[in-house]
Design a protein around this nucleic acid. Structure first.
Length: 488
RNA sequence: GGCUCGUUCGUCUAACGGUUAGGACAGCGGCUUUUCAAGCCGUCAAUAGGGGUUCGAUUCCCCUACGAGCUACCA
Protein backbone atom coordinates (compact mmCIF):
# COMPACT_ATOMS: atom_id res chain seq x y z
CA UNK A 1 0.00 0.00 0.00
CA UNK A 2 1.01 3.55 -0.60
CA UNK A 3 -0.62 6.09 1.66
CA UNK A 4 -0.01 9.74 2.31
CA UNK A 5 -0.74 12.58 4.59
CA UNK A 6 -1.45 15.82 2.81
CA UNK A 7 -1.40 18.70 5.22
CA UNK A 8 -1.80 22.34 4.39
CA UNK A 9 0.91 24.58 5.75
CA UNK A 10 -1.52 26.94 7.40
CA UNK A 11 -0.49 26.62 11.02
CA UNK A 12 0.03 23.99 13.69
CA UNK A 13 -0.84 20.39 12.98
CA UNK A 14 -4.44 19.60 13.87
CA UNK A 15 -4.98 16.67 16.16
CA UNK A 16 -7.37 15.15 13.61
CA UNK A 17 -4.77 15.46 10.89
CA UNK A 18 -2.41 13.51 13.08
CA UNK A 19 -4.87 10.71 13.68
CA UNK A 20 -5.61 10.34 9.99
CA UNK A 21 -1.88 10.40 9.32
CA UNK A 22 -1.41 7.74 11.97
CA UNK A 23 -3.90 5.40 10.35
CA UNK A 24 -2.26 5.98 6.97
CA UNK A 25 1.10 5.33 8.52
CA UNK A 26 -0.05 2.09 10.17
CA UNK A 27 -1.40 0.86 6.86
CA UNK A 28 1.78 1.65 4.95
CA UNK A 29 4.03 0.08 7.55
CA UNK A 30 2.03 -3.07 8.11
CA UNK A 31 1.94 -3.74 4.37
CA UNK A 32 5.58 -2.92 3.80
CA UNK A 33 4.42 -0.07 1.65
CA UNK A 34 5.27 3.60 1.58
CA UNK A 35 4.07 6.51 3.59
CA UNK A 36 4.31 9.82 1.81
CA UNK A 37 4.05 13.41 2.91
CA UNK A 38 2.72 15.86 0.39
CA UNK A 39 2.19 19.52 1.07
CA UNK A 40 -1.05 21.04 -0.15
CA UNK A 41 -0.30 24.72 -0.33
CA UNK A 42 -2.61 25.80 -3.11
CA UNK A 43 -4.47 28.32 -1.02
CA UNK A 44 -2.05 31.20 -1.20
CA UNK A 45 -4.00 33.37 1.17
CA UNK A 46 -3.89 31.04 4.12
CA UNK A 47 -0.22 30.15 3.94
CA UNK A 48 1.73 30.59 7.13
CA UNK A 49 5.47 30.80 6.80
CA UNK A 50 7.58 28.23 8.60
CA UNK A 51 4.81 25.70 9.11
CA UNK A 52 6.37 23.20 6.76
CA UNK A 53 9.51 23.08 8.87
CA UNK A 54 7.54 22.88 12.08
CA UNK A 55 5.36 20.12 10.69
CA UNK A 56 8.34 18.01 9.73
CA UNK A 57 9.88 18.63 13.09
CA UNK A 58 6.71 17.56 14.85
CA UNK A 59 6.72 14.39 12.82
CA UNK A 60 10.27 13.72 13.90
CA UNK A 61 9.38 14.34 17.52
CA UNK A 62 6.54 11.87 17.22
CA UNK A 63 8.93 9.28 15.85
CA UNK A 64 7.03 8.83 12.62
CA UNK A 65 9.12 8.46 9.51
CA UNK A 66 8.05 8.91 5.93
CA UNK A 67 9.44 7.33 2.81
CA UNK A 68 8.84 10.14 0.40
CA UNK A 69 8.27 13.84 0.63
CA UNK A 70 9.94 16.94 1.94
CA UNK A 71 12.63 16.43 4.57
CA UNK A 72 14.29 18.62 7.10
CA UNK A 73 18.04 18.30 6.74
CA UNK A 74 20.23 18.35 9.82
CA UNK A 75 21.37 21.86 8.96
CA UNK A 76 17.77 23.04 9.04
CA UNK A 77 17.28 23.46 5.32
CA UNK A 78 14.53 21.80 3.34
CA UNK A 79 15.14 18.91 1.00
CA UNK A 80 13.11 16.19 -0.58
CA UNK A 81 13.22 12.43 -1.09
CA UNK A 82 11.32 10.05 -3.35
CA UNK A 83 10.78 9.55 -7.06
CA UNK A 84 7.41 11.21 -7.43
CA UNK A 85 8.38 14.75 -6.59
CA UNK A 86 8.09 17.54 -6.25
CA UNK A 87 6.02 16.87 -3.14
CA UNK A 88 4.90 20.43 -2.70
CA UNK A 89 1.90 21.34 -4.78
CA UNK A 90 2.95 24.89 -5.52
CA UNK A 91 5.90 23.37 -7.35
CA UNK A 92 3.66 21.21 -9.51
CA UNK A 93 1.61 23.91 -11.18
CA UNK A 94 2.49 22.92 -14.73
CA UNK A 95 1.18 19.43 -14.07
CA UNK A 96 -2.23 20.63 -12.97
CA UNK A 97 -2.40 23.04 -15.82
CA UNK A 98 -1.63 20.30 -18.29
CA UNK A 99 -4.46 18.09 -17.07
CA UNK A 100 -6.89 20.98 -16.78
CA UNK A 101 -6.22 21.92 -20.39
CA UNK A 102 -6.63 18.34 -21.40
CA UNK A 103 -10.02 18.35 -19.75
CA UNK A 104 -11.02 21.51 -21.55
CA UNK A 105 -9.92 19.98 -24.85
CA UNK A 106 -11.95 16.88 -24.27
CA UNK A 107 -15.02 18.90 -23.34
CA UNK A 108 -15.03 17.84 -19.67
CA UNK A 109 -14.19 21.31 -18.45
CA UNK A 110 -14.71 24.89 -19.56
CA UNK A 111 -13.53 28.41 -18.97
CA UNK A 112 -15.66 30.61 -16.78
CA UNK A 113 -15.37 34.38 -16.71
CA UNK A 114 -18.03 35.13 -14.12
CA UNK A 115 -17.11 37.71 -11.55
CA UNK A 116 -17.26 37.14 -7.86
CA UNK A 117 -20.06 39.67 -7.63
CA UNK A 118 -22.18 37.82 -10.12
CA UNK A 119 -21.59 34.51 -8.40
CA UNK A 120 -22.47 35.94 -5.03
CA UNK A 121 -25.67 37.44 -6.33
CA UNK A 122 -26.55 34.26 -8.19
CA UNK A 123 -26.20 32.25 -5.01
CA UNK A 124 -28.20 34.72 -2.99
CA UNK A 125 -31.01 34.56 -5.56
CA UNK A 126 -30.93 30.79 -5.60
CA UNK A 127 -31.15 30.58 -1.87
CA UNK A 128 -33.92 33.17 -1.83
CA UNK A 129 -35.91 31.05 -4.26
CA UNK A 130 -35.12 27.91 -2.23
CA UNK A 131 -32.87 26.45 -4.89
CA UNK A 132 -29.66 24.73 -3.87
CA UNK A 133 -26.77 27.09 -4.69
CA UNK A 134 -24.99 25.90 -7.79
CA UNK A 135 -23.21 27.47 -10.74
CA UNK A 136 -25.74 28.22 -13.47
CA UNK A 137 -23.41 27.37 -16.35
CA UNK A 138 -23.70 30.79 -17.92
CA UNK A 139 -20.21 30.56 -19.36
CA UNK A 140 -20.85 27.14 -20.82
CA UNK A 141 -23.05 28.89 -23.37
CA UNK A 142 -20.13 30.95 -24.63
CA UNK A 143 -19.01 30.09 -28.15
CA UNK A 144 -15.43 29.11 -28.82
CA UNK A 145 -14.90 32.50 -30.46
CA UNK A 146 -16.29 34.38 -27.50
CA UNK A 147 -14.09 32.44 -25.14
CA UNK A 148 -11.05 33.05 -27.29
CA UNK A 149 -11.71 36.76 -27.53
CA UNK A 150 -12.11 37.07 -23.76
CA UNK A 151 -8.89 35.19 -23.27
CA UNK A 152 -7.15 37.42 -25.73
CA UNK A 153 -8.35 40.47 -23.86
CA UNK A 154 -6.75 39.02 -20.77
CA UNK A 155 -9.99 38.62 -18.83
CA UNK A 156 -9.64 36.74 -15.55
CA UNK A 157 -11.09 33.26 -15.71
CA UNK A 158 -11.30 29.94 -13.95
CA UNK A 159 -11.61 26.44 -15.32
CA UNK A 160 -14.66 24.52 -14.15
CA UNK A 161 -15.54 20.88 -14.50
CA UNK A 162 -18.62 20.08 -16.49
CA UNK A 163 -20.35 17.60 -14.26
CA UNK A 164 -22.01 14.96 -16.42
CA UNK A 165 -25.44 13.44 -15.88
CA UNK A 166 -25.83 10.26 -13.92
CA UNK A 167 -24.73 9.16 -10.52
CA UNK A 168 -21.45 8.65 -8.75
CA UNK A 169 -20.74 6.00 -6.22
CA UNK A 170 -17.82 4.57 -4.39
CA UNK A 171 -17.11 2.00 -1.74
CA UNK A 172 -15.74 3.64 1.33
CA UNK A 173 -13.42 1.28 3.16
CA UNK A 174 -14.96 2.30 6.47
CA UNK A 175 -18.56 3.06 5.53
CA UNK A 176 -19.42 0.92 2.55
CA UNK A 177 -21.19 2.13 -0.55
CA UNK A 178 -21.97 5.82 -0.84
CA UNK A 179 -24.06 7.12 -3.72
CA UNK A 180 -24.59 10.63 -5.06
CA UNK A 181 -26.77 11.98 -7.83
CA UNK A 182 -24.62 14.08 -10.11
CA UNK A 183 -27.34 16.71 -10.28
CA UNK A 184 -26.36 17.52 -6.70
CA UNK A 185 -22.79 18.22 -7.68
CA UNK A 186 -21.67 21.73 -8.60
CA UNK A 187 -19.46 22.54 -11.58
CA UNK A 188 -16.38 22.67 -9.41
CA UNK A 189 -13.61 25.15 -10.14
CA UNK A 190 -10.44 23.23 -11.01
CA UNK A 191 -8.05 26.06 -11.73
CA UNK A 192 -8.46 29.33 -9.90
CA UNK A 193 -7.93 32.69 -11.52
CA UNK A 194 -4.52 32.93 -9.88
CA UNK A 195 -3.49 29.84 -11.81
CA UNK A 196 -3.41 27.57 -8.80
CA UNK A 197 -5.47 24.39 -8.77
CA UNK A 198 -8.18 23.77 -6.24
CA UNK A 199 -7.90 20.85 -3.86
CA UNK A 200 -10.13 18.68 -6.03
CA UNK A 201 -7.93 18.75 -9.09
CA UNK A 202 -4.68 18.69 -7.17
CA UNK A 203 -5.49 15.61 -5.04
CA UNK A 204 -6.69 13.61 -7.96
CA UNK A 205 -3.68 14.46 -10.09
CA UNK A 206 -1.18 13.95 -7.31
CA UNK A 207 -2.66 10.79 -5.84
CA UNK A 208 -2.64 9.31 -9.30
CA UNK A 209 0.85 10.44 -10.24
CA UNK A 210 2.19 9.36 -6.86
CA UNK A 211 0.48 5.98 -7.11
CA UNK A 212 -1.40 6.39 -3.86
CA UNK A 213 -3.46 3.28 -3.25
CA UNK A 214 -5.41 4.29 -0.15
CA UNK A 215 -6.70 7.76 0.52
CA UNK A 216 -7.54 8.35 4.15
CA UNK A 217 -9.07 11.66 5.11
CA UNK A 218 -11.60 13.21 7.43
CA UNK A 219 -15.31 12.61 7.15
CA UNK A 220 -15.83 16.21 6.08
CA UNK A 221 -14.59 15.19 2.65
CA UNK A 222 -17.31 12.68 1.90
CA UNK A 223 -19.52 15.13 0.10
CA UNK A 224 -16.75 16.28 -2.20
CA UNK A 225 -15.80 12.75 -3.20
CA UNK A 226 -18.12 12.60 -6.23
CA UNK A 227 -16.17 15.47 -7.78
CA UNK A 228 -13.04 13.43 -7.52
CA UNK A 229 -14.69 10.27 -8.77
CA UNK A 230 -15.91 12.13 -11.83
CA UNK A 231 -12.47 13.58 -12.38
CA UNK A 232 -11.00 10.10 -12.34
CA UNK A 233 -13.53 8.99 -14.92
CA UNK A 234 -12.83 11.99 -17.13
CA UNK A 235 -9.11 11.32 -17.03
CA UNK A 236 -9.63 7.60 -17.34
CA UNK A 237 -7.69 6.87 -14.20
CA UNK A 238 -8.17 4.11 -11.68
CA UNK A 239 -9.61 5.19 -8.37
CA UNK A 240 -7.73 4.71 -5.13
CA UNK A 241 -9.49 3.20 -2.14
CA UNK A 242 -11.17 5.93 -0.15
CA UNK A 243 -11.63 5.76 3.59
CA UNK A 244 -13.27 8.61 5.46
CA UNK A 245 -12.34 8.54 9.10
CA UNK A 246 -14.76 9.90 11.68
CA UNK A 247 -14.35 13.37 13.04
CA UNK A 248 -12.82 14.20 16.39
CA UNK A 249 -15.35 16.24 18.31
CA UNK A 250 -15.63 18.94 20.94
CA UNK A 251 -17.47 17.95 24.12
CA UNK A 252 -20.60 19.43 22.51
CA UNK A 253 -20.18 16.99 19.61
CA UNK A 254 -19.37 19.55 16.99
CA UNK A 255 -16.26 19.26 14.85
CA UNK A 256 -13.21 19.82 17.04
CA UNK A 257 -12.33 23.46 16.81
CA UNK A 258 -9.73 25.85 18.12
CA UNK A 259 -12.29 27.88 19.96
CA UNK A 260 -13.46 25.00 22.10
CA UNK A 261 -10.24 23.32 23.07
CA UNK A 262 -6.72 22.53 22.18
CA UNK A 263 -6.41 21.20 18.65
CA UNK A 264 -2.75 21.62 17.94
CA UNK A 265 -0.38 18.71 18.22
CA UNK A 266 2.48 21.08 18.92
CA UNK A 267 0.70 22.56 21.88
CA UNK A 268 0.11 19.13 23.43
CA UNK A 269 3.75 18.32 22.98
CA UNK A 270 4.70 21.64 24.45
CA UNK A 271 2.57 20.96 27.50
CA UNK A 272 4.51 17.81 28.16
CA UNK A 273 2.37 15.09 26.66
CA UNK A 274 4.54 12.22 25.52
CA UNK A 275 4.59 11.36 21.84
CA UNK A 276 3.86 7.69 22.59
CA UNK A 277 0.93 8.57 24.79
CA UNK A 278 -0.48 10.98 22.25
CA UNK A 279 -0.16 8.42 19.48
CA UNK A 280 -1.66 5.68 21.60
CA UNK A 281 -4.57 7.84 22.66
CA UNK A 282 -5.33 9.21 19.22
CA UNK A 283 -5.11 5.82 17.58
CA UNK A 284 -7.71 4.51 19.99
CA UNK A 285 -10.07 7.37 19.28
CA UNK A 286 -12.33 5.70 16.77
CA UNK A 287 -10.73 2.32 16.71
CA UNK A 288 -9.80 -0.41 19.17
CA UNK A 289 -7.80 -3.56 18.49
CA UNK A 290 -9.02 -5.52 21.50
CA UNK A 291 -11.65 -4.72 24.01
CA UNK A 292 -9.67 -5.15 27.18
CA UNK A 293 -6.48 -3.23 26.75
CA UNK A 294 -5.61 0.41 26.48
CA UNK A 295 -1.86 0.68 26.27
CA UNK A 296 -0.31 -0.17 22.94
CA UNK A 297 3.16 0.80 21.75
CA UNK A 298 3.29 2.19 18.25
CA UNK A 299 4.84 -0.96 16.83
CA UNK A 300 1.88 -2.96 18.01
CA UNK A 301 -0.60 -0.48 16.64
CA UNK A 302 1.08 -0.90 13.27
CA UNK A 303 0.61 -4.62 13.50
CA UNK A 304 -2.96 -4.61 14.71
CA UNK A 305 -4.49 -1.76 12.78
CA UNK A 306 -7.52 -2.73 10.74
CA UNK A 307 -9.21 -0.15 8.57
CA UNK A 308 -12.47 -2.06 8.42
CA UNK A 309 -12.79 -1.85 12.18
CA UNK A 310 -12.57 1.89 12.37
CA UNK A 311 -15.72 3.38 13.84
CA UNK A 312 -18.13 5.32 11.72
CA UNK A 313 -19.23 7.89 14.25
CA UNK A 314 -17.32 10.88 15.57
CA UNK A 315 -15.40 10.68 18.83
CA UNK A 316 -15.33 13.27 21.55
CA UNK A 317 -11.82 14.04 22.70
CA UNK A 318 -11.63 12.81 26.30
CA UNK A 319 -8.93 14.88 27.95
CA UNK A 320 -9.11 13.03 31.24
CA UNK A 321 -8.31 9.80 29.55
CA UNK A 322 -5.43 11.38 27.67
CA UNK A 323 -4.07 12.62 30.99
CA UNK A 324 -4.46 9.21 32.52
CA UNK A 325 -2.73 7.57 29.61
CA UNK A 326 0.12 10.04 29.70
CA UNK A 327 0.58 9.30 33.39
CA UNK A 328 0.63 5.58 32.63
CA UNK A 329 3.46 6.07 30.15
CA UNK A 330 5.34 8.21 32.63
CA UNK A 331 5.05 5.51 35.27
CA UNK A 332 6.01 2.54 33.20
CA UNK A 333 9.07 3.81 31.39
CA UNK A 334 12.55 3.07 32.76
CA UNK A 335 13.66 5.43 35.51
CA UNK A 336 16.51 6.79 33.45
CA UNK A 337 14.25 7.66 30.59
CA UNK A 338 11.82 9.40 32.90
CA UNK A 339 14.59 11.48 34.42
CA UNK A 340 15.89 12.48 31.02
CA UNK A 341 12.42 13.65 30.05
CA UNK A 342 12.16 15.72 33.20
CA UNK A 343 15.29 17.74 32.51
CA UNK A 344 13.89 20.30 30.07
CA UNK A 345 11.17 21.22 32.55
CA UNK A 346 13.50 22.15 35.36
CA UNK A 347 14.82 25.41 33.98
CA UNK A 348 12.54 27.62 35.98
CA UNK A 349 13.52 26.05 39.29
CA UNK A 350 15.99 27.71 41.69
CA UNK A 351 18.24 24.69 41.64
CA UNK A 352 21.61 26.23 40.83
CA UNK A 353 23.30 25.28 44.06
CA UNK A 354 22.01 21.73 44.21
CA UNK A 355 23.73 18.70 42.84
CA UNK A 356 22.25 16.58 40.10
CA UNK A 357 21.36 13.59 42.30
CA UNK A 358 19.14 15.88 44.36
CA UNK A 359 17.22 16.90 41.30
CA UNK A 360 16.81 13.34 40.16
CA UNK A 361 15.51 12.35 43.56
CA UNK A 362 13.08 15.21 43.44
CA UNK A 363 11.75 14.12 40.06
CA UNK A 364 11.40 10.56 41.25
CA UNK A 365 9.60 11.75 44.35
CA UNK A 366 6.62 13.00 42.37
CA UNK A 367 6.62 10.47 39.59
CA UNK A 368 3.27 9.06 40.66
CA UNK A 369 1.77 12.50 40.79
CA UNK A 370 2.78 13.88 37.44
CA UNK A 371 0.22 13.54 34.70
CA UNK A 372 1.85 15.86 32.25
CA UNK A 373 5.44 17.00 32.47
CA UNK A 374 4.61 20.70 32.60
CA UNK A 375 3.26 20.10 36.11
CA UNK A 376 6.68 19.09 37.31
CA UNK A 377 8.09 22.50 38.38
CA UNK A 378 5.14 23.32 40.59
CA UNK A 379 5.19 19.84 42.07
CA UNK A 380 8.81 19.88 43.18
CA UNK A 381 9.61 23.56 43.35
CA UNK A 382 9.24 23.74 47.12
CA UNK A 383 12.13 21.35 47.60
CA UNK A 384 14.53 23.95 46.30
CA UNK A 385 13.20 27.02 48.04
CA UNK A 386 15.57 28.41 50.70
CA UNK A 387 12.68 28.51 53.15
CA UNK A 388 9.03 27.57 53.07
CA UNK A 389 6.12 29.90 53.61
CA UNK A 390 3.36 28.42 55.75
CA UNK A 391 1.47 29.10 58.91
CA UNK A 392 2.75 27.45 62.09
CA UNK A 393 -0.70 26.02 62.77
CA UNK A 394 -0.34 23.81 59.74
CA UNK A 395 2.31 21.88 61.63
CA UNK A 396 -0.22 20.70 64.21
CA UNK A 397 -1.97 17.38 63.84
CA UNK A 398 -5.66 17.65 64.63
CA UNK A 399 -5.88 18.90 68.25
CA UNK A 400 -2.15 18.83 68.82
CA UNK A 401 -0.55 21.69 70.79
CA UNK A 402 2.48 23.64 69.66
CA UNK A 403 4.49 22.34 72.56
CA UNK A 404 3.71 18.77 71.68
CA UNK A 405 4.63 19.20 68.02
CA UNK A 406 7.79 20.95 69.03
CA UNK A 407 8.80 18.13 71.31
CA UNK A 408 8.21 15.49 68.67
CA UNK A 409 10.10 17.39 66.02
CA UNK A 410 13.01 18.05 68.33
CA UNK A 411 13.37 14.40 69.22
CA UNK A 412 12.97 13.25 65.64
CA UNK A 413 15.54 15.79 64.59
CA UNK A 414 18.08 14.48 67.08
CA UNK A 415 17.31 10.95 66.10
CA UNK A 416 17.96 11.72 62.45
CA UNK A 417 21.02 13.73 63.28
CA UNK A 418 22.58 10.79 65.05
CA UNK A 419 22.34 8.63 62.01
CA UNK A 420 25.77 8.19 60.55
CA UNK A 421 25.07 8.50 56.88
CA UNK A 422 24.75 11.96 55.54
CA UNK A 423 22.42 10.72 52.83
CA UNK A 424 19.12 9.14 53.60
CA UNK A 425 19.05 6.72 50.78
CA UNK A 426 16.42 4.17 51.63
CA UNK A 427 12.83 5.15 52.14
CA UNK A 428 11.92 1.79 53.64
CA UNK A 429 14.79 2.01 56.05
CA UNK A 430 13.76 5.41 57.34
CA UNK A 431 10.17 4.35 57.48
CA UNK A 432 11.06 1.42 59.68
CA UNK A 433 13.36 3.22 62.08
CA UNK A 434 11.15 6.24 62.59
CA UNK A 435 8.13 4.05 63.11
CA UNK A 436 9.97 2.05 65.71
CA UNK A 437 10.98 5.28 67.40
CA UNK A 438 7.29 6.20 67.54
CA UNK A 439 6.41 2.84 69.06
CA UNK A 440 9.28 3.05 71.49
CA UNK A 441 8.14 6.44 72.72
CA UNK A 442 4.52 5.40 72.87
CA UNK A 443 3.50 8.09 70.37
CA UNK A 444 0.87 8.03 67.63
CA UNK A 445 1.77 8.11 63.96
CA UNK A 446 -0.32 11.15 63.25
CA UNK A 447 1.08 13.53 65.80
CA UNK A 448 4.61 12.70 64.78
CA UNK A 449 4.49 12.13 61.08
CA UNK A 450 2.13 14.98 60.26
CA UNK A 451 4.34 17.69 61.77
CA UNK A 452 7.39 16.07 60.22
CA UNK A 453 5.82 16.01 56.80
CA UNK A 454 4.60 19.59 57.01
CA UNK A 455 8.01 20.72 58.25
CA UNK A 456 9.51 19.17 55.15
CA UNK A 457 6.92 20.26 52.62
CA UNK A 458 5.17 23.29 54.02
CA UNK A 459 2.07 21.90 52.37
CA UNK A 460 -1.22 20.49 53.45
CA UNK A 461 -0.88 17.75 50.86
CA UNK A 462 2.42 16.35 49.74
CA UNK A 463 4.46 13.21 49.37
CA UNK A 464 5.15 11.35 52.60
CA UNK A 465 7.81 12.29 55.14
CA UNK A 466 10.12 9.36 54.46
CA UNK A 467 10.20 10.03 50.75
CA UNK A 468 10.79 13.70 51.47
CA UNK A 469 13.69 12.91 53.78
CA UNK A 470 15.30 10.89 51.04
CA UNK A 471 14.68 13.60 48.48
CA UNK A 472 16.26 16.26 50.68
CA UNK A 473 19.22 14.37 52.07
CA UNK A 474 20.28 14.72 55.68
CA UNK A 475 21.62 18.23 55.70
CA UNK A 476 18.71 19.98 54.06
CA UNK A 477 16.17 17.85 55.88
CA UNK A 478 17.55 18.98 59.23
CA UNK A 479 17.53 22.54 57.98
CA UNK A 480 13.81 22.29 57.16
CA UNK A 481 13.06 20.83 60.59
CA UNK A 482 14.98 23.64 62.24
CA UNK A 483 12.97 26.15 60.24
CA UNK A 484 9.78 24.51 61.45
CA UNK A 485 10.93 24.49 65.05
CA UNK A 486 11.63 28.19 64.77
CA UNK A 487 7.99 28.73 63.86
CA UNK A 488 6.73 26.89 66.94
C1' G B 1 -33.39 24.49 2.93
C1' G B 2 -30.78 20.47 -0.05
C1' C B 3 -27.36 16.43 -0.08
C1' U B 4 -24.48 12.99 2.73
C1' C B 5 -22.90 10.51 7.03
C1' G B 6 -23.93 8.89 11.80
C1' U B 7 -26.62 7.03 16.72
C1' U B 8 -24.11 0.93 22.65
C1' C B 9 -22.93 3.52 29.91
C1' G B 10 -21.43 11.00 31.03
C1' U B 11 -16.89 10.00 27.55
C1' C B 12 -13.67 6.37 24.50
C1' U B 13 -15.10 1.63 23.07
C1' A B 14 -16.13 -4.46 22.78
C1' A B 15 -19.71 -7.82 21.33
C1' C B 16 -19.31 -8.87 12.90
C1' G B 17 -27.90 -13.15 14.90
C1' G B 18 -27.77 -16.53 20.67
C1' U B 19 -23.34 -12.81 26.35
C1' U B 20 -26.00 -11.91 33.26
C1' A B 21 -24.36 -6.38 26.84
C1' G B 22 -17.57 -6.78 28.33
C1' G B 23 -13.33 -3.22 29.19
C1' A B 24 -11.18 1.80 29.98
C1' C B 25 -11.54 7.10 31.66
C1' A B 26 -14.47 9.98 34.87
C1' G B 27 -17.85 9.39 39.31
C1' C B 28 -19.02 6.93 43.85
C1' G B 29 -17.51 3.44 47.93
C1' G B 30 -13.78 0.57 50.39
C1' C B 31 -8.78 -1.19 51.52
C1' U B 32 -3.94 1.05 52.49
C1' U B 33 -2.66 5.38 55.26
C1' U B 34 0.23 11.13 58.85
C1' U B 35 -2.09 14.22 54.22
C1' C B 36 -2.68 14.14 49.01
C1' A B 37 -1.61 11.17 45.09
C1' A B 38 -0.41 6.24 43.33
C1' G B 39 -1.94 1.16 43.87
C1' C B 40 -5.56 -2.70 44.81
C1' C B 41 -10.79 -4.18 45.35
C1' G B 42 -15.80 -3.06 44.61
C1' U B 43 -19.97 -0.13 42.61
C1' C B 44 -23.20 3.03 39.54
C1' A B 45 -24.18 3.44 34.42
C1' A B 46 -25.83 2.13 27.73
C1' U B 47 -28.04 -0.66 22.83
C1' A B 48 -32.48 6.83 20.50
C1' G B 49 -37.94 5.44 19.31
C1' G B 50 -41.27 2.52 16.25
C1' G B 51 -42.06 -1.18 12.78
C1' G B 52 -40.47 -5.45 10.17
C1' U B 53 -37.08 -10.21 8.83
C1' U B 54 -35.91 -14.36 12.18
C1' C B 55 -36.94 -19.68 16.67
C1' G B 56 -33.90 -15.47 18.35
C1' A B 57 -31.98 -9.13 17.22
C1' U B 58 -27.08 -4.20 19.79
C1' U B 59 -26.07 -6.82 15.24
C1' C B 60 -29.95 -7.26 8.92
C1' C B 61 -34.08 -3.99 6.42
C1' C B 62 -37.59 0.29 6.61
C1' C B 63 -39.60 4.70 8.92
C1' U B 64 -39.20 8.56 12.57
C1' A B 65 -36.37 11.48 15.87
C1' C B 66 -31.97 13.58 17.04
C1' G B 67 -26.88 14.89 15.95
C1' A B 68 -23.02 16.07 12.63
C1' G B 69 -20.51 17.25 7.98
C1' C B 70 -20.76 19.61 3.32
C1' U B 71 -23.26 23.18 0.49
C1' A B 72 -16.35 28.84 -1.94
C1' C B 73 -11.87 30.83 -7.24
C1' C B 74 -10.62 27.12 1.57
C1' A B 75 -8.56 22.85 2.43
Amino acid sequence: MRTRMAPSPTGDMHIGTLRTALYSYFLARQSNGQFIIRIEDTDRERLVLGTLESLLKTFQTLGLDHDEGPVLRSDGTLGEKGDCGPYIQSERLSLYKKYAEQLVQSGHAYCCFCTEERLTKMRADQIASKQPPKYDRLCLKLSTEEVQSKLNQGELYVIRMKIPEGESKFIDAIRGEILFQNTEVDDQVLIKSDGFPTYHLAVVVDDHLMNITHVLRGEEWISSTPKQIILHQMLNWEMPVYAHVPLILNPDKTKLSKRKGDVSVESYLKKGYLPQALINFLALLGWNPTANREIFPCSELVELFDLSKVNKSGAVMNMEKLNWMNAQYLKMMPEKEYLALCQPWLDTLPITHYALPDIDRACLLVRDRVQILSELPQLIGFLFEPSLEYDASLLLWKTQTKEDAKERLTIVREFLNKRLTDQFSLIADLDQTIRSLIVERGWQNGDTLWPLRVALSGQKQSPGPFELLVAYGKERALERIDQALAKL
